[in-house]
Design a protein around this nucleic acid. Sequence first.
RNA 1: GCCUCGGUAGCUCAGCUCGGCCGGAGCGGCGCCCUCGUAAGGCGCAGGCCGUGGGUUCAAAUCCCACCCGGGGCUCCA
Length: 624
Amino acid sequence: MKLLLLHSDYLEVEAREKAVDSAEDYDEGKKRVEECLVVFNALEEGDEKDLDYVIEKADEEIRDILDQVNTDKVVIYPWVHLTSKPGNLDDAMRSQKLLEEKLSDLEVTRTPFGWYKEFEIHVKGHPLSELSREIRPGEDDKKPAKEREGEEEFSRFIILDEEGNEYEVDKHKWKESDILNEDTRNSENLKNLVRCEIGEGEEKGKPPHIEIMRDLELVDYCDVSDAGHFKWHPKGVLLKELILDYQDELVKEYGAFKIENPLLYRLNDERINQLIGEFQEKIYNWEEDGEKLAMRPASDPGQFPYAQNLSISYKHLPLKQYEETSCFRKEQRGELSGLRRVRNFTMTDTHTFTANEERAKKEFQELCDICKDLMNSIISKGDWVLEWEGTVDYWKENKDWIKKVTRKMGKPAFIQLSEERSHYYSMKADFEAIHPSGIETQVSTVQMDLVNGERFDITYTGEDNREHPCTILHCSTFGSIERTLTFLLEDAVRNGKMNATLPLWLSPIQVRIIPVSPEKHMKYSEELAEKLEEERIRVDIDDRNESVGRRIRRSESEWVPYTLVVGDDELEDDTLSVRRRETGKEVDMEAEELTEEVKEKIKDYPFRPLPLPQKLSERPKFIG
RNA sequence: GCCUCGGUAGCUCAGCUCGGCCGGAGCGGCGCCCUCGUAAGGCGCAGGCCGUGGGUUCAAAUCCCACCCGGGGCUCCA
């Protein structure tokens, strides 16, 4: 039996005239059924051998779909043309009645058998709305619910441990790998990564960072923009700027020059067309004065043409070009999720142009070192692992080198290999942060690109005075700042919200002073604040007319790492009562001690001043 | 794009089943009392034509229709 199942808004059907002599009697007029599953069906040759089984199976399939589309109205509609080998008429008519009986506990409508019918149908557009099934007697195994195009991109999976030892992984038995079941943080994180990549996928539900980013007044939805575009409050802007400051330091050390390209590109330029092509449906584009324009979905559309126009000699190599840019991708509506998947994000991207692959490997290593530092300093010392992706051939030829790089990162790696090169890179290393919930966030990536130099005519003049294509390395230290922030926030609540905290250098407010009595202790508080400020510490004063308890609570809910209460006792001797958020306990220390402690923790990190009025009484509430 | 849930005060939400006696609470804000000692002190005040537009009705936050916007899921992406 062949079945065609259509989840429909409505079906209207009217019997016109008998198509066969044996057609059943029928004299009802036009019928209309709304919000139903229309079951077109045709009995096939051979089905009569075990009609009961066929009907039973059909019943099963129909109920399965009903369940999924969440309706209980069925229309049974015989349609012989679904098959090229129809069963005989009598059996076919019988099958209709049997099916109706089988489904009789539901709201079933049957259209007459053997008539020419006129019908109008409106089928819904969701993925389950159009399904076909085939049932054959004697075939017991159920067809898969969805027949996916099972194109297997990767053919080989390998794990490297921190020492660079190699373990082959079976896609279907990955859980059994000993290396994934060791009782270490690395092993556990790697297991989570492998699960996300080839296992049952990511954990679902509302991501925890959404509530946090709003509670901390960092980032918020923006009701006047497109979905997936966010507004940033002062503290959020500060956070982003500090991270980018840090990034700038890394770039400077690496020796790259910083450039800035437009956000908007002309699609009728062949290069742009090629570069944006991969993003196809995902670009924001429109027409302006007859010209097709698009917002940049990545840094390449700006950076490649930029590099093309440079005059590069072998003496300039390796040439390092860095850009930090806003990218726009029109992700599907339903795919957007907090800051994790957005339509506008900031990316930091370096391209290194080298003379040849050998030289590129050296640079690759150096870029990985940078990414490692970044992971360890900004993201999380513990909870990240490596992922390599590339071709089987590249792996075979460069195994030792890949192992060497991995060893230097001090993290285990998961390697996915495909027979054919599917992207421009032959091999890439992704730096994946692992959330407390087990999901991954790709932070950095370093990619070995052996083809685009030639393809986009990015060349250097060699000693031989001839043009040679560059081997290009792509390194995005932050695939997206937004995602990085997502991880930071979720990582912060790894052990619960109680003592959750951002790294001190990223805390928008590092020290809060609470004068017990605003009038009496204000002067001292202000002097203290000034002293701390001189040491480049972000400090503010909660001078609101509230009880001490209430102000402590506010400070804690804003994740302020150090809270000082200033009262009569402090005026007398110079000891401060310091509440450390990390421990939730308060200790007495002198101003100098506190300064030293804070400075020690933030010594080499960027600093930016408080982006808000110092006194809380002068500060608006941004959210809630 | 599809499915689904939602849109009520600055924020979080209750009220809608069964139309009227419904426009509320907490937080936040403001004011007053208190001059406070480590995660919510007390009292008071101001904030909303209940997403938009239609419809039904003597009467709509509540019922119906359309649209807009947001969350989640699917698909997609990786």
